[in-house]
Each structure stands twice: as structure tokens, then as C-alpha cells.
Design a protein around this nucleic acid. Structure first.
Length: 569
RNA sequence: GACUCGGUAGCUCAGCCGGAUAGAGCAACGGCCUUCUAAGCCGUCGGUCAGGCGUUCGAAUCGCCUCCGAGUCGCCA
């Protein structure tokens, strides 16, 4: 609402300046940091400079233009401070308007309706078969899931794709390892653990026996060509891994529209290579087939000298398939920073092939989870299993419940929801591009800027609402909106729709996460100041309206981030 | 070595398409539970925005250089 007013003022002033000076000055209306200065602020420096006029004439010009704006009610006060013109809005009107629009469209379907609904493919999670589901894949999973939710909320169609890492030379390695030192019974008992150990064992042995690498590549090539024994082992490993992953996804409440991994594209590779060949892009280089993708990037390796394919070949096949199958407007790859070059190459390949959609390929990169300041390595067996972290978080959550609320009826279910959500929120609250050091204590922290803080705030509100009956009858004590700490909450709620849009457009769930923390903090601060359930019905009803809005926004926001919403804890 | 990303309070981070006195949480210290859930609230302490130069009325924000950290750099994914 305030956002709309801001846009209106910007448009009005830009037009007025053009009319008076024939100058295209794009006026920016900003929000002053200090609330005492007002709700909106117009700096006039750009006009001074462009029109080469004095500061005071620029101020006078803007002031008179503002008077012509058809804005009878909302702007209550205009004050000039140096080169800034500060506008203060009528808090009663803002509060009433907000509540009205909130009640008219509580799910924001009208406000967030896109001009052009798009189809967005999101490639995320994508764990590597036969390896434990690690913290690294947690990041991709929950960032991708949240971005998908955000786009859906904005009215777009989202296709969620789990591009399983179920193919490639790594399987040559594991199969080699299994044949030479594997044990069927042990794998059946504890598949992921054993398979991961086989993978580590391979790399340990290969240090002294480099010919093993060659052998692994040969096995993969045969797997690719359909060697029945290798295919059987591969299917077995894949199936066992998938079972394990589904367990994790269940805990995280994420699901996908497609689980077509790399292997799915095995029979679609020839098409890609033919296409590259026809366009004369493919060339041979020391036995392998490569494509030059420009002087600023290293060439892309499409086919190994033994004829088998690579990661990028499969990604290329996948994008062709996805364009045909889903007709995406955008395809997002939620994959770590370390693969930046890979996606630059992929994008360039698509551009070189003149397919016309290279601009819609977006690498939504995220920071690495470090251990002792360095990247974790599956090859050396240095991974942290997600399931262990989740278990730890749920246990801590149980402890809190025993300490704070031992009579809670459904302890176990709440403990699970709080613990898992804490881990999810901890990952989403900071900008995704930042690397971070693995720190279990930080991940399962429940105090301060955390998931449980948001849940707790919502629960507190819920507790009050459940003790009161109130009706949305519009009978409001609007004088109450004048109070700073109330008005701050109103302004924060008003900001919710644009926060969702920004969060989606920048592929940054952290924007929403920070917003929710701020809203919760404003509410808790208010909660400490005033009693809600007062005797005066009109006042009470007004407060309950506000609480209802805060709770609705908090719950909706948490849901978008992939957290579990609860009503008591 | 080249390229990419980063360096803001003791720690974890916001702010970065230039705007007014750089903000949160944690930690530390001091308060607040006979009244709506204290997983909370209030207060105190804490800054050469890595360093330098430049552009500008105005720089944490833009440009260049230096230092430091991480990642990547054809037969892994």
C-alpha cells in the first residue's frame, strides 16, 4: 500500500519534471532510516543537478508538484530538511486500509497475481546416489524448495526436478570397489554407509594404484552401453540410496515432480552430440570431443576419449528435454558455488547452439559448508550426515519441551517440527551465496534469530486468539494506530507482498527469513508493552485484528520457507 | 599463475542499482515471570565498514590498486 503510494509519487514527479524541464529524471522515493523523519522521503539532488537549478527552487518545485497529486487522505504532513522532502502519512488511514485489504485478500492472490504467469523449472536437491545425504545437499534441497514455494505464491507454475546424481564415472568406481572388496550381505544391512565406505576405499587404494581409475572409467563406459551385470548392480545401489533419501525428504516435507536423474538421459545423449556435430561446434582435442565456448572460458568437454559422456553432456540433454517437456520460461539450477564455471559453460553451449533460451538458464548458486575452513570431501569420507544433524536438533527440542512445557500433549510431534524447522531456518536466514563453517551448535540453536523464535511468536499469538472470540466487523479504534510501536507493525505487514516478490525475483529466501525475524521481533516487543485482552471491546477487537494479521503473515512466511507451523509448543 | 566470490562489533550476519547519526542476534554485564506461553522482553557495553587512491554535493555501497580467505581452471559430478 505504502509501496504503491511511493510508486505513484515517483511516476507523478517524473512526469511533472518532464513537463516543466523536458528532462528525464527518474525520481526515487525512499524510506528514511529514522522513522521520526517520516514514512517517505524525496531527495531533490538529482533534479538540482539535471535541471541546473538552485536547491531551494528544486524543493519548491517538488512541493508544488506534490500538492497537485490526487492524494487527499494519506499524506498528513510534508517537511523539508535540507535536500530531502519528508512525507508523513496518516497512520489511521494506513492502518484501516491495510486491514481492509488484508481481509479482502488474505492469501494475497490478487496482489501477487503476475502479469505474465511463467513456468519455472527448478533443479534442486540432486543428491549423488550411493553417498550419504549430506549437509551440502540439504542446502540445495531447502533453498530450492523455498524458491519453488515463493514462485508458486507469486502465481507461477513450478516444476520441481530432482536431478539425481545417478550416473557417471563414480559408478565405475563403486562397482569396481564392490567387485573387489565388497560384501553383499553387509550392503543389504546398511546400504548407504557401506557404499560410501566403498567409495572412500576406492580413492585410498587408487592413490597407489592409478590404473584403478582407468578401470573405473572402463566399467562406467560398459555400464553406459548396457553391460547387464553392471546395470544390475547400478540399479540395486540406486534403489537402496533412493529409499534412504525418501526418508530424508519425508522428514523435510519436500517432494518433487520428477526424479529423473542423469541416467534418465543416457538414451538422449546421441541427439545432443549429433546436434553439436551438425552445427560444426564439436572438435577433437587429444582424443576427446570438445566445444570452444569463447576465449574467456575453458572449452567444454563433451565426450571422453573412450566415447563415454560427461556431466555437461547430460545437462545439455536434460535442458533440451525439459524445454520440450515443460516449456519452461526459466530453469533454475540450485547448485553450489563450486560449479559456477560448469553453468557458465552450459549457458554458453546453449547460446552457441542458437537454441534461443540461454538467457533463461540461471545458476542459483550457494555457499559451501566448510569444515576447518575447507570444503568437505566425500572422497575422503569427511561428510556430515544430515540425518544426524536433524536427530540432534529434535533431541534438543525434546529437552526444551521437558524443561519448559512438560505437560504438552503431543510432545514428540512438536519436537520433530521444531527441531527440523530450526535446521531449515538456520540455513535460509543468511544469504545463500555465503560460505559457512559447519557448526552443529549454531545449527540447532533455539535462541535469538532462529526458527523456534518464529514458531514461538506464532504460538504466543495463537494462544491469545484462542482465548478470545472476536469478529472482523471493522469496528476499530483507529487512534491506536498512532502509537509508534503499533504503526511499526502495520508498516511491516504492509511490506509482506513486496518482500515475497523480491525474495522470489532474487532467488533469495533469506530476504523473507530476515523479514519474518523483524516482524516477530516487532510483535514480541509490542507484546511486552501492552495487554491484549483488555475489557474495552473496541480496543480489544482492534488489537486482535492486528495479532491475527501478524500470525497469518508469520505462518504463511514460515510455510513458504518450508518450515512447519504449529499452534502450541 | 588466471578467473570467480568474499572481508562490516569478540562471534554469526543485515545494509551494497550512492543519501541523513552504519543495524540485528549471540556472547558479556544489569533488570523483568501472583496478569494473555520468559524458546520472550528492556537496558548497558561493543565499529579505522581489510588498507590505500579515485569519482561525487554525498561512498560500507561505484571504479582502480594492494593485502587476506575460499572456490574453480578438459577426460569427476
Amino acid at each position: 500500500m505504502i509501496h504503491q503510494l511511493k510508486k505513484d509519487i515517483e511516476a507523478h514527479l517524473t512526469a511533472a519534471i518532464f513537463e516543466a524541464y523536458q528532462l528525464e529524471v527518474s525520481v526515487i522515493v525512499e524510506e528514511p532510516k529514522k522513522p521520526i523523519l517520516g514514512d517517505l522521503s524525496v531527495p531533490v539532488f538529482s533534479l538540482v543537478k539535471a535541471a541546473k537549478i538552485r536547491l531551494d527552487s528544486a524543493v519548491a518545485f517538488v512541493l508544488s508538484s506534490l500538492e497537485q497529486l490526487q492524494e487527499p487522505k494519506r499524506i498528513a504532513q510534508v517537511a523539508v530538511m535540507g535536500g530531502f522532502i519528508n512525507l508523513t502519512l496518516d497512520r489511521k488511514v494506513v492502518g484501516r486500509d491495510l486491514i481492509k485489504s488484508f481481509l479482502d485478500d488474505p492469501d494475497l492472490v490478487q496482489i501477487l497475481q503476475p502479469v505474465h504467469p511463467e513456468t519455472i523449472c527448478i533443479d534442486y536437491s540432486s543428491p549423488n546416489i550411493a553417498k550419504p545425504f549430506s549437509i551440502g545437499h540439504l542446502r540445495s534441497t531447502i533453498i530450492g524448495h523455498a524458491i519453488g514455494n515463493l514462485y508458486e505464491k507469486c502465481g507461477h507454475r513450478v516444476v520441481r526436478i530432482n536431478h539425481l546424481g545417478d550416473f557417471g564415472t563414480q559408478f565405475g568406481k563403486i562397482i569396481y570397489s564392490y567387485i573387489h572388496f565388497g560384501d553383499q550381505a553387509r550392503i543389504e544391512k546398511n546400504p548407504i554407509q557401506e557404499l560410501a565406505e566403498l567409495y572412500v576405499a576406492f580413492h585410498e587404494q587408487a592413490k597407489d594404484h592409478p590404473e584403478m581409475e582407468e578401470e573405473a572409467r572402463r566399467i562406467f563406459k560398459e555400464l553406459e552401453q548396457g553391460n547387464p551385470e553392471y546395470v544390475r548392480l547400478w540399479q540395486w545401489f540406486r534403489q537402496e540410496s533412493l529409499k534412504d533419501y525418501m526418508h530424508v525428504y519425508e522428514k523435510l516435507h519436500v517432494a518433487f515432480d520428477s526424479y529423473d536423474g542423469e541416467a534418465f538421459y543416457n538414451d538422449k545423449m546421441a541427439e545432443v552430440i549429433d546436434l553439436l556435430h551438425q552445427q560444426g561446434l564439436l572438435k577433437q582435442d587429444s582424443g576427446a570431443m570438445i566445444v570452444d565456448v569463447g576465449a574467456d572460458l575453458p572449452p567444454a568437454l563433451i565426450q571422453k576419449s573412450d566415447g563415454s559422456t560427461l556431466y555437461i553432456t547430460r545437462d545439455l540433454a536434460a535442458i533440451l528435454y525439459r524445454k520440450r517437456t515443460y516449456g519452461f520460461d526459466k530453469v533454475l539450477y540450485v547448485v553450489g558455488n563450486e560449479q559456477k564455471l560448469h553453468f557458465e559453460q552450459l549457458k554458453r553451449l546453449v547460446e552457441k547452439m542458437a537454441l534461443g533460451y540461454h538467457e533463461s538458464i540461471i545458476h542459483v548458486n550457494f555457499g559451501l559448508v566448510l569444515q576447518d575452513g575447507k570444503k568437505m570431501s566425500t572422497r575422503k569420507g569427511k561428510v556430515v550426515r544430515l540425518i544426524d544433524v536433524l536427530d540432534e536438533a529434535v533431541q534438543l527440542s525434546r529437552n526444551y519441551i521437558e524443561e519448559k512445557n512438560p505437560d504438552l500433549p503431543d510432545k514428540e510431534s512438536i519436537a520433530e517440527k521444531v527441531g527440523v524447522s530450526a535446521v531449515i531456518f538456520n540455513d535460509l536466514k543468511n544469504f545463500r551465496g555465503n560460505d559457512f563453517e559447519f557448526d552443529l551448535e549454531e545449527m540447532v540453536n533455539f535462541v535469538g534469530q532462529t526458527g523456534p523464535y518464529l514458531q514461538y511468536t506464532s504460538v504466543r499469538i495463537n494462544s491469545i486468539l484462542s482465548q478470545a472470540d472476536f469478529v472482523f466487523d471493522g469496528a476499530l479504534d483507529d487512534a491506536w494506530f498512532e502509537r509508534d510501536y503499533v504503526y511499526d507493525i502495520i508498516k511491516a505487514i504492509d511490506l509482506y507482498p513486496q518482500t515475497i516478490e523480491r525474495s522470489a525475483n532474487e532467488y533469495a529466501p533469506s530476504i523473507l527469513a530476515k523479514y519474518l525475524l523483524n516482524l516477530a521481533s516487532l510483535f514480541n516487543s509490542y507484546y511486552g508493552k501492552e495487554k491484549i485482552l483488555v475489557d474495552d471491546l473496541r480496543e480489544r477487537n482492534t488489537k486482535l485484528h492486528l495479532l491475527y494479521m501478524v500470525k497469518t503473515v508469520l505462518n504463511d512466511g514460515m510455510h513458504l520457507l518450508g518450515m512447519q507451523v504449529i499452534d502450541h509448543m
